[in-house]
Design a protein around this nucleic acid. Structure first.
Lengths: 158, 158
DNA sequence: TAGACGTAGA
DNA sequence: TCTACGTCTA
């Protein structure tokens, strides 16, 4: 059940600072940074319009997100790249991808969490990177030859 | 990574009482009751012999565990009943099933956690039921027609 | 690398 | 009911 104190909102989460580290997606949920345990893009719907609230980057599977200090090139979701039994498909402008596109047009802040390997090689860990704005997005051919969305996010100064 | 304070041991876990409730398998791990997030039978290996430390009962999938106040009929693991794309197979006397059989022979305590639906219908919850001994085990034909282990566990009085 | 009684939301 | 950037052990 969802007995979580903090609701999913756009922007800063009180008590959370840039550089804070976490071990599990479940922890991100508890502190209010990112509520979807198995999904990289979290979003809310306001008056029928989806807006991204947070994204978690990864190097796993075919998600080769590029992280520079202040710029992130983030791979969209969908296409079933994980499940090897299913064929890869073009990503669609729905759900989280649509939310990121809307966040760009409406200039809404997006929380960015960087996912990576944990120090001991087993498991993962997550670092809160702060608030970003979606600057641009485009389509690329992924490893599978199918269309993949790429979102460029830039850190909000200050 | 496994940065958990309590190691996986047989028997009582300090600070945990019968009736204590939890929401996630991950919580069971943190408090030291059950370390395997996606597996029902947890065990340790001592001098090359596997012994069960804890089991989590369930009503999901084809795991129709029967719970009476002091007796649990627990379904063994394996057989791939979950993954519908794979054919069901006979369960084997390996891993967790072997650990439970060894716990019976050597009269080792097993922690029992009862898994069930959460109050709101979404999600699940887990209740610590206390220490049990494996009294008996046998093979049955499961729903799929394949061999399934059933373990009878009885609550240790007091 | 694959398998395992996981979770939440569309 | 299915999908989703999970998480651990063998």
């Amino acid at each position: 059940g969802k007995n979580v104190n903090t609701p999913n909102r756009i922007g800063h989460v009180p008590g959370i600072n840039v550089g804070d580290e976490f071990q599990y997606k479940a922890e991100l949920r508890v502190v209010g940074l990112h509520f979807r345990i198995m999904s990289g893009i979290d979003y809310v719907e306001i008056d029928g319009v989806k807006f991204a609230t947070s994204i978690v980057s990864s190097k796993k599977y075919d998600y080769d997100d590029k992280f520079d200090a202040d710029v992130l090139i983030y791979t969209g979701e969908g296409g079933n790249m994980i499940n090897k039994e299913k064929k890869a498909e073009d990503q669609k402008m729905i759900k989280g991808n649509l939310a990121l596109a809307n966040s760009m047009i409406h200039k809404r802040e997006v929380r960015v969490i960087r996912g990576g390997e944990s120090w001991d090689g087993k498991g993962k860990h997550y670092v809160y990177e702060g608030l970003f704005l979606v600057d641009n997005y485009w389509l690329e051919k992924g490893v599978s030859g199918k269309n993949v969305y790429k979102f460029k996010l830039c850190r909000i100064p200050g």
